[in-house]
Design a protein around this nucleic acid. Structure first.
Length: 707
DNA sequence: TAGGAGTGTCATTAT
DNA sequence: CGATAATGACACTCC
């Protein structure tokens, strides 16, 4: 079914673009422009048929109208796709519109229909003829598909959130899904209406919507998604006794072929239905897998988000990345569509001739299971939910894994970048806290190094040289001036430093960005400001250098301390004591010298302490990153396995459909001739299905004529 | 002018 | 027991 959407601008302004988006997300084909690929493909990402220019043009259009495909939220999507499922069901019915309306009115009068009557498509008198048009507007231009109180939706949501007993994976989903919890149902419409019209410039919203968009895109590209549509429908309608979809509930989703309900073939129909269910049932109840995969994607995206938030460039390029990834998946669209078409065939359609007679099929599951001589098929069928080989279509697998690999690549690249930055920072002595690794490290002169710099400790313990040159006394301040950062404040650096702790730390680990705007040089050795001289030699320049001196330097000068503070601080105990013995110093001078030494050492200790704190934080972040990568890897593996399982199930569905169609076509004449049917079904491939169908029909007709 | 960030210093405790 | 390291808390400075 093709939904024509001739006037894109009109529908943008009237809000129908939302409907188009939802239709697209729900797997409908929505045509916007004869010169463009279907809107559904546009919304869901550029396909192979969509050029980059076309895609960007459309995105510009979307942005121009402040309507962003990413703004579609899940709940609205669910509502829309339920409507779509219902409409599809109507399509299957192939009932004239007037008749359908009359029937609906009748059902509505019996209070049996609540939601369908609110679907604007029908309220506006739309029948099957109107389905070639996009969703109709209400009289006031409102979205006519809007559902006032969608109890079905609530039931669906509550089931998903509060009744995980339905299946295992739903339970798992409930445990960790924030996807569902993000938007409480009561806020759906408000948030949706706001999201759909707010500027897409807000960063966080942009990212969240981007993620949702990716999830939805993938969901639609997922070859199993359309199957999920039907199953969601079943979940909301059939499983729950309070079905809001009586049409589907009673006549469609029960999967009863109307042929089978013919008055004369009731028994045969039941048998066939049994057979059909026996094959379908193990294959179809897997709506949980949709959520599971969605959740996996959401998890991966959440990981990505946390990573991407650290780099604005990634944020800006996220759209392009998404496009690229989607484009990668576009190569398998044919396969996907094929799978979808095959899968959709599992739900029986109403026959072209409703009054056709029903073959007297008398089959049960066991006989048919035995009839499957292909032991591999049987084995796959029996093990469909457990450990399966991976017969995944290479294209599908490749595309899926490519997309995941891109994400992992982004993670690893980001992690690598961080790692390199840290290595650079660690190997660089730019940080004032990192003085121990500077060439002028005090570790080389005395045992004041920190525990985290073992090399310095060992070297300092064995230190034999007597005095350290004055200019090398405090290395961190040396670096400070070498980097030219003193007084070289850059405003943008401050901005970056304020953005987050990680960014702050990363930027401050860059040597050129350290000591931004700070000039705490009062404790620096004066040797860095002038050639190394003893105090008495430099006393004549006191006035010129006083502004650069630290408090202790000033005090030392005032007390006529005959050696530099660097020596006071950095000499080891023995050398320090020897130095004190060399001079005859007063008690006040000795006290000041000891204070200077204590303060200097404490200063370095404080720097070490702070550096250790940062190191601990860095290690913790690395641990978090590695765990995130591990989690992403495990999620990817889980997703791959789920895809494999679903692929097998879908193939089995297709095989079943072939077999069943064959049985039905042969009208029971050959249903006992299992070998023939299965061999035919096994050797046929999907591409030649129609051709072989016609051939087999001809064969059957010939046989019947012969008989 | 308030607040963040970097740094120095002090007090305290541990080694 | 003194020296030193480690660290929390506070103050100062700069932006």
């Amino acid at each position: 079914m093709v939904w024509a959407m001739p006037d894109l601008k009109k529908y943008f302004t009237e809000g129908l673009i939302q409907v188009a988006i939802l239709l697209s997300l729900a797997g409908m084909r929505v045509d916007v422009d004869p010169y463009l690929p279907p809107f559904s493909e546009i919304i869901l990402g550029p396909s192979s048929a969509l050029t980059q220019t076309q895609f960007h043009n459309l995105r510009n259009i979307l942005d121009g109208y402040n309507v962003h495909p990413k703004s579609v939220d899940l709940d609205e999507f669910i509502t829309a796709r339920r409507h779509l499922s219902w409409v599809r069901s109507l399509d299957r019915l192939q009932v004239p519109a007037a008749e359908l309306e009359a029937w609906l009115v009748h059902r509505e009068s019996d209070n049996a229909v609540s939601i369908p009557s609110q679907v604007g498509l029908l309220e506006e008198g739309g029948g099957l003829e109107d389905m070639e048009e996009p969703m109709r507007l209400g009289s006031g231009g409102e979205l006519s598909y809007e559902v006032a109180e969608d109890q079905s939706l609530e039931a669906f949501m509550s089931r998903s959130l509060n009744h995980p007993d339905d299946d295992e994976l739903l339970k798992e989903e409930d445990a960790e899904s924030f996807f569902w919890e993000q938007d409480p149902p009561q806020n759906i419409h408000q948030e949706q209406s706001e999201n759909g019209r707010t500027q897409p410039n807000l960063l966080n919203d942009e990212e969240e919507e981007e993620d949702e968009f990716m999830v939805e895109s993938w969901r639609n590209l997922n070859p199993f998604h359309n199957q999920m549509l039907e199953e969601d429908l079943e979940l909301s309608g059939v499983r729950d006794g309070s079905s809001l979809w009586p049409l589907i509930d009673s006549s469609l989703l029960s999967e009863e072929d109307p042929e089978l309900t013919g008055p004369g073939v009731q028994n045969a129909g039941e048998h066939a239905l049994q057979f059909q269910r026996s094959l379908i049932s193990p294959l179809l109840p897997e709506q949980e897998s949709t959520f599971s995969l969605e959740q996996q994607w959401q998890d991966v995206l959440s990981i990505m988000e946390s990573q991407v938030m650290n780099t604005t460039e990634t944020i800006e390029d996220s759209l392009g990345n998404i496009s690229d990834s989607d484009r990668n998946t576009g190569s398998i669209e044919n396969v996907i569509h094929q799978d979808i078409s095959l899968n959709q065939a599992t739900l029986p359609r109403f026959p072209e001739t409703p009054n056709s007679t029903m073959p007297n099929i008398n089959l049960d599951t066991s006989s048919n299971a035995e009839a499957f001589e292909d032991s591999d098929i049987i084995e796959l069928l029996m093990n469909a939910g457990s450990d399966l080989p991976s017969p995944l279509d290479p294209l599908l697998e490749e595309a899926m894994l490519d997309e995941i690999a891109l994400m992992d690549l982004g993670l690893e690249e980001l992690g690598q970048t961080q790692f390199e930055e840290q290595n650079q920072a660690d190997s660089d002595s730019g940080l004032s806290l990192d003085y121990s690794q500077s060439p002028s490290s005090p570790c080389g002169s005395e045992s004041s190094s920190s525990s985290s710099s073992s090399s310095c400790s060992s070297s300092s313990s064995n230190s034999t040289h007597s005095l350290v040159p004055d200019e090398d006394a405090v290395g961190y301040s040396h670096i400070k001036e070498e980097d030219g950062a003193v007084g070289g404040f850059m405003p943008e650096q401050t901005k970056m430093c304020q953005s987050s702790f990680l960014e702050t730390r990363q930027f401050h680990r860059l040597p050129c960005l350290e000591h931004i705007g700070h000039d705490h040089t009062y404790n620096q050795p004066q040797s860095q400001r002038k050639p190394p001289k003893d105090f008495f030699e430099e006393s004549t320049e006191d006035n010129a250098l006083e502004h650069l001196s630290s408090r202790d330097e000033k005090r030392a000068r005032l007390m006529n301390i005959p050696f530099s503070n660097e020596r006071i601080i950095n000499l080891n105990v023995d050398e320090f004591n020897r130095l004190l013995e060399k001079y005859h110093l007063s008690e006040a001078q000795l006290t000041l010298i000891r204070d200077i030494r204590r303060r200097g050492k404490n200063k370095m200790a404080a720097q070490n302490c702070r550096r250790r704190k940062l190191d601990v934080l860095v290690e913790l972040e690395h641990g978090v990153d590695s765990l995130r990568r591990l989690r992403a890897k495990l999620l990817r593996e889980k997703s791959e396995i789920s895809c494999s399982i679903k692929e097998v199930k879908q193939r089995l569905n297709s095989l079943y459909e072939e077999v069943y169609e064959r049985l039905r076509e042969e009208q029971g004449l050959l249903y006992c001739d299992n070998n023939f049917t299965l061999q035919q079904g096994r050797t046929r491939n999907a591409a030649s299905q129609n051709r072989s169908d016609s051939q087999s029909r001809r064969k059957l007709s010939k046989r019947q004529k012969h008989k």
